[in-house]
Amino acid sequence: MQTVYDFNVKTIDGKEASLRNFEGNTLLIVNTASKCGFTPQFEGLQKLYEEYKERDFIILGFPCDQFKNQEFSDIQDTIDFCQSNYGVTFPIFAKIDVNGDNEHPLYTYLKKQKGGILSKNIKWNFTKFLVDRNGQVVERYAPTTRPSKIRKDIEKLLRK
């Protein structure tokens, strides 16, 4: 059975990295953007990460520029923005596409596991996927879902 651990992604310096490096952790995978109305969610995401990282919880941020070009063209600008404005310390990867012809295979998998209400496509920045320790997608959250609203679901997975 396929899991999120079967995928490779690019780090911010362009190197290939296996998501197998996160095996055994509860994950929250988020497509992010630095210049979006939902960008302040970085603060809530960072709070969740700090609260649960000692219990093997990791947030994986994937910058995406597919929605009204709301991401910096240079990944270093993205990293600097996230760190200086929101204190982000969770892993952020290279920019990816989450829909369309150049869609990253990870997102093809995520959307297949948990489709949206009207379609499987990602509708906007800050769509979130909660993944259990076995690499299975257990929930998908809309961009409007504040990180604090995911806390109960995270705690359930951390107890297992």
Rank of each mutant, 00 (worst) to 15 (best):
E103K: 14
R133T: 11
H104S: 13
T89V: 15
T127D: 10
H104M: 13
T108P: 02
V131Y: 11
K114P: 03
V137G: 06
K114D: 04
I96G: 09
G135W: 01
Q136W: 05
L130I: 09
I96N: 14
F90K: 09
R133F: 05
K114I: 12
F126M: 07
F126Y: 06
K128L: 10
G87K: 08
V88R: 13
A94E: 14
F93V: 06
V88N: 12
G115H: 06
R133K: 15
T89F: 06
T89K: 15
K114Y: 04
T108Y: 04
L130V: 03
T108K: 15
P91G: 03
G100K: 13
K123T: 13
D132Y: 08
I117V: 15
F129D: 06
N102K: 15
I92L: 15
N121M: 04
T89G: 05
I122W: 03
F93T: 04
D101V: 09
I122M: 02
V98I: 00
N134P: 02
L110G: 07
G87R: 11
A94P: 00
N121F: 03
K95D: 02
N125D: 03
P91C: 01
G135I: 05
G115Q: 14
F90N: 12
F129W: 08
N99H: 01
E103D: 06
Y109I: 03
F90T: 08
H104W: 11
W124P: 11
L106W: 02
K123G: 06
T89H: 11
F126L: 05
D101R: 09
G87N: 13
P105Q: 01
Y109D: 06
K111V: 02
G116W: 04
G87P: 06
L130F: 07
V137E: 00
I92D: 07
Q136Y: 12
F93N: 08
I96K: 12
I92K: 13
